[in-house]
Design a protein around this nucleic acid. Structure first.
Lengths: 215, 215, 215, 215
DNA sequence: AATGAATGAGCCTTCATTCAT
DNA sequence: GATGAATGAAGGCTCATTCAT
């Protein structure tokens, strides 16, 4: 329908548009973002967005897809299996990867911001995001949690524990504005992020093991 | 500067505007919301918002203040709990209140949605919200956590535990669109909400007690 | 029709409205002036203008009438006769009065400004202004000019000379913004105003006497 | 910043906008003029003004610049007069040019009206007008006046005489509404305009020569 | 007599989009 | 393939005015 065929094959202008759009969408939200601002940053024509992506929404969807394909490249471990290690250790690895990807300062920082927005103000693109990115991650976490809780754990309990773990992680990204006002001493540099991952791991391990004991 | 003096003293039109604005702001966000839509719902003139609240942003700030004053009325226990009870029990009460206020179907459902938005896309009004609503709540939680962790716990550890607990609660509200896609079987009726509060309480108690033991 | 009957008989609120309106109309013009600003300055209600003067235009007309009645009080000499003095001296007195009334810093400074506006952007009120204020003044000037030019002067010549004289005077008021940019050294304090009146008198006397000699 | 680069290079739509804007601004003033009216006359879209000139004020500035560039084209002699002629003759030519440009019925009649407005209600654009248009004209007049008054004349006297001369000319344009009410027999057709220029020339020559003689 | 609340018309501007080249 | 010009819908806001008290 439009010149662009897939994420992999695209012109340089499209690349620049996607990168620029990612930043602006993440920083200002879909509504507040203007096509002109994106085109200005991408040094492209005002009509470029409509030409390459149909309309503003089309660009947004493309940005999300673009973000996913890159995220999967960088953090593929979320899906690979290392079933031989003890579950607690696998949980630690999992949490570290989630936290690192949320606070990765090297990579385009707008990816996780965009995701957070998508959760609160879902667009039509959310379905694809859940199916391709979130569900696989959730299934990996499910198997870890189930391993720690033991076979006796109900599906509902496993589910709630998954949500408790992932909720702890995301809170630090989603609630940043509040956290910074509440705890100015809380930082998210490389060092602090490691400590944070450790904390969530210990917190959750203790919790799961307690639940496994029926407490 | 503008006719409106305080939340308590205001005309009927202002009341209707605040209610209507709360719904629409919560449903669509600040940007997407139009003054015209709010006035239509409130059966008021297009100029009513500007007359009573100065501008769209003034209305938004008033809505937040309005929401708080009502929330504090309904859930005042967050700040005046009985200190004699065991800390675990106080934690359970605290979490139950938080969860209930988040999923209270009786009250205007837009309150917590509005808060969730404010966290991701903070406006100038956030400072007041943190100072008046969130900080007192956080301090209450801090004292509970410190009681369970024991005097040896560092400030940083207490802080991270607070965030772990509150993060679990908010995740269920903030990430609803994702959760519903991921776990269609997860509901948030009165019964399920109680179970949810219980889960978070047990999860967190186990976690805290484990940490208290140095694990 | 409206409570207000005449300029002389009016309440204190009306007085304040007239004064405030005079200042604002003179400073910003009819269009740019807002009823709210006037009422704010007059410490009156927003509806006061409509209540006392019907509408914004009615207030404007009242302000002009108010200005005239006061101007005639202060500079009555423009119309009294001193036919015994030599014409040149009478011209000097006339010009001095015009210039003084234009640059009178004691009196409400907005009167002449308002007049200048009325000339360029005439409203329905201009007819009354011309009939009551300007024409009598013009007739006085006509008799002076005719006396200097002599009986042989045509009506057209007398008319053009009148306009040349009055044009010199008004230019200093009407073109102030330009004059100040062009000649920053030109001031209009009490002393300079006297010199200005003298200059215009000498300039015009020389001109008229030359024309009288047929040059 | 905006598409428009210079007065000379512009699209046809911009031309039409400038012409339409000139008429309306001159007839109604900046405030009263609506962008819609201008666009309607120029058969352009409502957004055309903002697209081509940024905003209403930008259009206004462009109109003034446009007017100047055309006026200078048509009456360039104001600045390049032949210095060898006697000063009185040069004064006559100067005044004739000023009067003709003020009452030129062929050219867009709105130019001088716009100027008159700008004098009473100056905008940010006035600085440029003075610097580019008015000051050169004033300097030309200054040299003529100084030549007639003689070397003994003070700067202040030269300045006041300049203002007396130019004031006579402008009065006929600026005070038209009053003049027509006061002297219905006064017309400004091609013939009368010539007589008017002659009158002002004779009036001023007599005045200057008298002053030169110390009278 | 005088006021605060409320109104509706209209204005400037912005923005995503389309059109002609 | 890509662009600058142009569009129309809509939004926030201002303002003179009116209404109920």
């Amino acid at each position: 329908m439009y010149p662009r065929k897939s994420t992999a094959v695209c012109t340089e202008t499209q690349q620049r548009l996607l990168e620029a759009a990612g930043e602006v969408f993440a920083a200002q939200g879909f509504q507040k973002t203007t096509v002109r601002e994106i085109c200005r940053r991408a040094r492209a024509n005002v009509a470029a967005v409509n030409y390459h992506f149909g309309d503003k929404e089309g660009l947004y969807a493309a940005v999300l897809e673009y973000a996913h394909s890159h995220a999967l490249e960088k953090y593929p471990l979320l899906q690979t299996e290392d079933e031989d290690l003890p579950a607690e250790q696998r949980l630690g690895t999992f949490i570290r990867h989630v936290i690192f990807s949320l606070f990765d300062e090297g990579a385009p920082a707008w990816r996780s911001k965009l995701m957070a927005r998508e959760m609160i103000e879902p667009t039509a693109a959310l379905d694809a995001v859940v199916a391709r990115m979130i569900r696989p991650t959730a299934q990996r976490l499910e198997s870890i949690v189930r391993a720690i809780l033991g076979a006796a754990a109900s599906d509902a309990q496993v589910r709630l524990c998954q949500l408790s773990i992932i909720g702890q992680c995301l809170h630090h990204r989603h609630a940043q504005p509040v956290i910074q006002r509440l705890f100015p001493q809380q930082h998210y540099g490389p060092e602090e992020v490691k400590l944070l991952a450790d904390h969530i791991t210990r917190f959750s391990c203790n919790a799961l093991k307690g639940l496994a004991r029926g407490q």
